[in-house]
Amino acid sequence: MKKNVLLIITILMVLIILGGCSPQQSEKVVLNIFNYGEYIDTDLIDEFESKFDVSINYEIYPTPEDMYTKVKSGATSYDLIISSDYMIERLINEGMVQEINYDNIPNYQYIDDNFKKQPYDSEGKYTVPYFWGTLGVIYNTEIVEGTPDSWDLLWDEKYAGQILMMDSQRDSLGAALKKLGYSLNTVNPDELEEAKQLLIQQKPMVMAYVVDEVRDMMIGDEAAIALLWSGEAVAAMGENEKLNYYVPVEGSNIWVDAMFIPSDAKNKEVAEKFINFLCEKENTLRNIDYVWYSTVHTEAIKEVEEFLFDNPGFNPSQETINNTEMFRDLGTNINLYDKVWTEVLSD
């Protein structure tokens, strides 16, 4: 008897483990959305839910690579994902993204043409741009003298021990490559070797290699100079008036995040409705107030507050934009970057 009970427990355990994720029964349409953390005004989600009578299952991820791993594993089928250029390129190349029916997104007309048909989606079939930004340098005007405009500031001996670099190999190597005048998508081992030497030379001056902490450390005056993304910089400048941001003259990285619908999405039309909802001017403005990154919306940009419009982090000049380059998916060549970065950190 006891034996049977335990056998049943064993079988039940297996069933629970294997069948734990059975689909939920619900009358409402459930829209599965996958986004970076802190990258949407969540009030907009609630509003969409009540307005269109759908239920939204909103999940977040920390880095594009985490997103890729989770989507690739196929554990959940998402209806809408917001992610970055090179990762979208990889997913499109792998056939994991489906074409969008732009007829369902009338507000697509308000998206700046400069941000449509980006290299990752050159025919403009799969994506709707969301926000964009640059990679640059944020510095404390009380400590740094003059008005720097070059990558050299990150290599300035005067500020040794007060410089923050990013623990993100593409960004940190990108800064070094741009300082040398090379493409930040180079796969030339000699150029990468030069960039490596530059970073090794810089290493004794670097306080730490961090990502998430940069903003708080700059706000708290823990460091004087840091490599940082524009939106983070704009947010930091809002909290600490001493901070300033620039995109170096040697050129830098530009990135455009976009919304796309994975090929295994179950509610394509609702997802398109949601994209359209986010592209409404009012909703875009509310979103800007929350995420602080630069907008792709041609109408919304005219109505942002003045301090944002004048901020080089939020609204860089066309000249700056022309001098930037987008990260491309490097395929297996990413291993070159990986090795170089490990070598920098092992020196």
Binding site: T63, E65, D66, T69, D167, S168, Q169, K203, V206, M207, A208, Y209, V210, D338, T342, L345, S346
Partner: peptide, 17 residues
Amino acid sequence: GNKQAYIGTLIEKLFLV
């Protein structure tokens, strides 16, 4: 501050980045 690579950080990076 991630100034040096360690075995744990290396494995994490190889999987996630």
